[in-house]
């Protein structure tokens, strides 16, 4: 892992109005095979991607939201959610899926993947990345 780059996927758009969210997730899943240091960020309308109870039966589109809960199995354990983006939309962490990953080093203890960060904190996280994929 020493040569691994810090890859961050930034998700800024609501899940179904455009295809960006779904095709971003496809990059994350494929990219997991490359063993980089991956994290995801959700900001602006992108926070809607993680909401619980999505139902797409009325619009004839695939509900891909269950895929987020599989990210832990792809060793994606760092999911940053911007606090201000949630607040501006009247959302709280309770409105989002509970995403977890299993820590191999601690007997597969289940840990939270979502890290709630302020806009300023997220800016620092972004500044520390090598590669930013912006969706």
């Amino acid at each position: 892992m020493s040569d691994a780059k810090k890859f961050m996927y930034i998700n800024r758009k609501a899940p179904y109005g455009t295809i960006y969210a779904w095709e971003s997730l496809e990059v994350v899943l494929i990219g997991a095979a490359f063993e980089q240091d991956v994290s995801l960020a959700f900001m602006d309308d992108g926070v809607y991607q993680l909401t619980k109870g999505q139902d797409t039966s009325g619009i004839g589109m695939k509900n891909f939201s269950p895929t987020y809960s599989a990210l832990g199995d792809y060793e994606v354990s760092k999911i940053y959610v911007e606090k201000e983006s949630l607040e501006e939309r009247g959302l709280t962490l309770d409105d989002l899926q509970h995403l977890v990953w299993e820590d191999e080093d601690e007997d597969y203890a289940e840990k939270d993947s979502i890290r709630l960060v302020s806009r300023a904190e997220l800016a620092d996280v972004l500044a520390g990345q090598d590669v930013l994929f912006n969706f």
Partner: peptide, 21 residues
């Protein structure tokens, strides 16, 4: 080709520049 080509681009290049909304 596949999305792996994009990820490889991110790994192999000094900069990845994204054009879009």
């Amino acid at each position: 080709s596949g999305l792996g080509q994009l990820v490889e681009g991110g790994i192999q290049s000094d900069r990845l520049i994204v054009f879009g909304d």
